[in-house]
Design a protein around this nucleic acid. Structure first.
Length: 297
DNA sequence: ACTACTCCCTGCCAGC
DNA sequence: TGCTGGCAGGGAGTAG
């Protein structure tokens, strides 16, 4: 589920329940996720205060006092949910209904607030493609997860000139090039499909075809850059506006239904105004690509 | 250096 | 009703 906008929404949803609180206990219900959890994980973080939540690419960062951060990647199926202390104030009572796949609750953050109110933040991940690590913030860029990572799609670093420099000479299809986190950080299968649809570009087109002989971006690359930035910005906006309802629903964060224009719409009509095409599906690099063969060229 | 493919894990759904 | 195969929003590792 989680691409950059979903992780950003999770961060915003968790922040009010985590920032400023004391991490009293880290409950590890198994020794590993996708990879082994860091050595002495609980001992290194327990008793520290959470100063802020941040995000880089698809990584959620729980920044602790004293310069240490917990790095959390949600993989394909990771999600967080919040369990607050019961409003009645009974100690140890939580009003959340138990999730039916509680067996996949792998990591539980026990938090104390300034007024003694407590909360639990629960990481659930059925497929265990997610992982966590500990990193000193001053060494953040050297961490394997961040070394070589491309720019954020909504930051100032992403523009058509940058993409031209990365696309130049590439025979690789646009689809797999945009999925490469070293080119742009945070795009996943859904938003790559959506961005290419918006820019009316074929996912199979070689990335290098969007660069002139002089290394300059052609118009289509300007369009693609704009499409990437807007599709991500709008998804973050949509996630934010759905956040309140979503937490109210069941305390979970990270699963909210957006409406997509091409993703998972095989055989349905293309939504490009005036286009009478039908959404197609093909496999590229082992992943499904959804596109309109009429207006994406 | 590029590019393509496989695999990690569990759940779900369509089709038989 | 069960079973089976295919597929899932990520990314690391490996092999050409």
């Amino acid at each position: 589920m989680p691409e950059l906008p979903e992780v950003e929404t999770v961060k915003r949803g968790l922040a009010p329940s985590m920032e400023g609180r004391l991490l009293t206990r880290l409950e590890l219900r198994r020794p590993d996720l996708r990879f082994p959890l860091p050595a002495d994980f609980a001992a290194r973080v327990e008793g520290r205060r959470i100063v802020s939540l941040s995000r880089r690419a698809k990584y959620l960062l729980i920044d602790l006092e004293d310069g240490l951060s917990i790095l959390s990647h949600l993989g394909m199926s990771g999600s967080y949910r919040i369990e607050r202390q019961d409003e009645t104030g009974l100690p140890g009572q939580f009003h959340m209904a138990r999730s039916r796949d509680e067996k996949h609750d792998h990591v539980i953050f026990h938090l104390d607030g300034p007024d003694g109110d407590s909360a639990r933040i629960i990481y659930n991940d059925p497929r265990r493609f997610g992982f966590m690590d500990l990193v000193e913030r001053r060494n953040m860029d050297q961490h394997a997860a961040f070394a070589g990572l491309g720019p954020e799609p909504v930051g100032n670093a992403l523009d058509a000139d940058y993409l031209a420099s990365r696309f130049k000479g590439k025979a690789q299809p646009l689809k797999s090039t945009l999925l490469d986190q070293r080119v742009i950080a945070g795009l996943g299968n859904i938003y790559v499909c959506e961005a290419l649809w918006r820019a009316h570009l074929s996912p199979a087109k070689p990335a290098g075809a969007l660069v002139s002989a002089e290394g300059r971006p052609v118009t289509a690359l300007e369009d693609l850059t704009f499409a990437i930035r807007t599709v991500i910005a709008e998804a973050i906006e949509a996630g934010g506006s759905s956040l309140r309802d979503h937490i109210q629903a069941d305390g979970s964060l990270g699963y909210f239904q957006h409406s997509f224009n091409v993703y998972d719409r095989e055989d349905e009509p293309c939504r490009t105004p005036g286009c009478h095409g039908t959404v197609q599906r093909m496999t590229q690099a082992g992943r499904s690509t959804f596109y309109c063969s009429v207006c994406q060229v």
